[in-house]
Amino acid sequence: MLHAGLLYDKRGTDTSPDWPRRFAELARAARDERLRSFYSAGIVSGDTPIRDVPLLALDVETTGLNPAVDAIVSVGLVPMTLDRVRASAARHWLVKPRVPLSEDSITIHGITHSQLDRAPDLVEVLGDILDLMARHVMVVHCREIERLFLGAALVHRINEGIEFPVIDTMQLEGRLYRNRPASLWRRLWPRRETPVSIRLSPSRQRYGLPRYRLHHAVTDALATGELLQAQIAHRFSPTTPVGELWA
């Protein structure tokens, strides 16, 4: 996943809705059968302890960074709970983008034109993906990417968007390093310093997680799931309500 342009925390947009109620509304409003059943399956309420929440680490790889013009080329899903990242149940889909693939993204994802030529359109696998997502809280690193690209792809194909609660490991990292008020010392002696990177690899390193070769949707999802386990082990607790983590 690429999120270089989207690193900055968009504060003020974080008021999380009452998701179970929101899902009920969305289920009534949805026109697409697959979306309707996704919403109808429901979602845990915000006061559920994180250890009891079924989670799904999600990553999409795209042709570029602009949701308006770029498209999804692959989707990786790894189901997990707080104490187990179920890599053994990971799923991966290549999907044929409706836009041309640039040379740049090929080198990043290692996905070739010929592989994508044989791949299905996202709409063909949407049912499978939504089935797996149903009842799970998504775990992503940089939620804007997943939300915007998935939303755009769905609007494009079925003329409906999608909403779901997301735990964003980048945002959890950002809370630690970006939103903290400067110390008195820093206010008195301001100094230019390199901000701590909250991108996936450097964040993982801070928790002693191994270096993975990223930019494969499943590997990135796995890496994100492991990062969440580490963040909760260090900074939260198994009983932390999921409502404090999701957005």
Binding site: V85, R86, A87, S88, G208, Q229, A230, A233, H234
Partner: peptide, 13 residues
């Protein structure tokens, strides 16, 4: 490889 699941443990646990 296909059977493996993953778990993170904080130091000391």
């Amino acid at each position: 490889g296909g059977s493996i699941d993953v778990r993170y443990y904080k130091a000391g646990s």
